[in-house]
């Protein structure tokens, strides 16, 4: 590393590093990536000793600068839907920061530009994704074309439900329970009306929409890198979500028990 130091207020640099870490964690990065990014940014702006501790909902950053000052900041992380597009941008930004060492105001602007809250509207690409996923996996598990059609319709309705209610509350387990009940009822109705033929295939298609795949994957990757605490937290959340999905669909089947 070159000796040329960029003169920045440590508090500002830490703010920027924590912003980066927080946004990455919320977009679905592994703990190792977050801690590595924060350490690298702080080291790039003035060396010293950096201590980072990150779990799923908290980042603690403590920095002893070369001049001997100690600074500590903590940050509470709130859950956010996974967005790999933003994660990739942030990854590129952290490479850029460590290489060019831009002033903190510029970093702040870039993070704001990446994390600008999405416009609240119905995204066609996302809806297409829902429909493709549900219909394709209905056919994948052996349904016929009419089941695929039913699953597609259910997927559109579920996307609209997500659009209306997703931001209310941050308990994802309860939310996935509620949306599973809704999806289960929609699946049963679609078969009762006569669009779909096999209730099981339609339901499997909608289950694939909600499966907590990213949580499970990140849990594995975290545990493997030695972050057992976060790994267990994520695994527990993923398992609870899986159980909630099963219970939700179970409730829907019980409601329509005699009819199917």
């Amino acid at each position: 590393m070159d000796k040329e130091k960029v003169c920045e207020d440590p508090a500002l640099v830490m703010e920027c590093a924590l912003d980066m870490g927080e946004t990455m964690l919320r977009c679905g990065a592994e703990i190792l990536r977050v801690e590595d990014t924060i350490t690298r940014i702080c080291t790039a702006y003035g060396g010293g000793i950096v201590d980072v501790f990150t779990i799923l909902s908290l980042i603690i950053l403590s920095w002893k600068t070369d001049t001997g000052e100690n600074h500590t900041l903590t940050r509470r992380i709130n859950p956010h839907p996974t967005d790999l597009n933003k994660l990739e941008d942030l990854n590129a930004l952290s490479r850029y920061i460590c290489e060019k060492k831009p002033p903190c105001s510029e970093i702040g602007q870039r993070i704001c530009a990446i994390m600008a809250p999405d416009e609240r509207r119905i995204y066609k690409s996302k809806m297409t994704g829902y429909v493709l996923l549900a219909s394709a996996f209905t056919l994948f598990f052996g349904g016929n074309l009419r089941d695929g059609l039913a699953a597609g319709i259910v997927a559109v309705l579920m996307y609209l439900w997500d659009y209306c209610f997703a931001s209310h509350g941050r308990n994802r387990v309860v939310y996935s329970l509620v949306i599973s009940v809704v999806a289960g009822i929609l699946c049963c109705l679609s078969v009762l009306i006569g669009i779909g033929q096999n209730i099981d295939k339609v339901m499997i298609g909608s289950i694939m929409l909600m499966i907590p795949g990213i949580n499970l994957m990140n849990a594995l990757r975290d545990m493997m890198c030695g972050d057992i605490i976060t790994g267990i937290l994520r695994l527990a959340e993923a398992l609870m979500m899986a159980v909630a999905i099963a219970v939700g669909f179970g409730i829907a089947i019980m409601l329509f028990g005699g009819l199917l």
């Binding site: 597009n85 933003k86 994704g129 829902y130 493709l132 996923l133 549900a134 996996f137 994948f140 990213i214």
Partner: peptide, 14 residues
Amino acid sequence: TAAIGTIGYCLNIN
């Protein structure tokens, strides 16, 4: 269908 489904999933997680 797996190919189509994965495209759907990619769109879903943006």
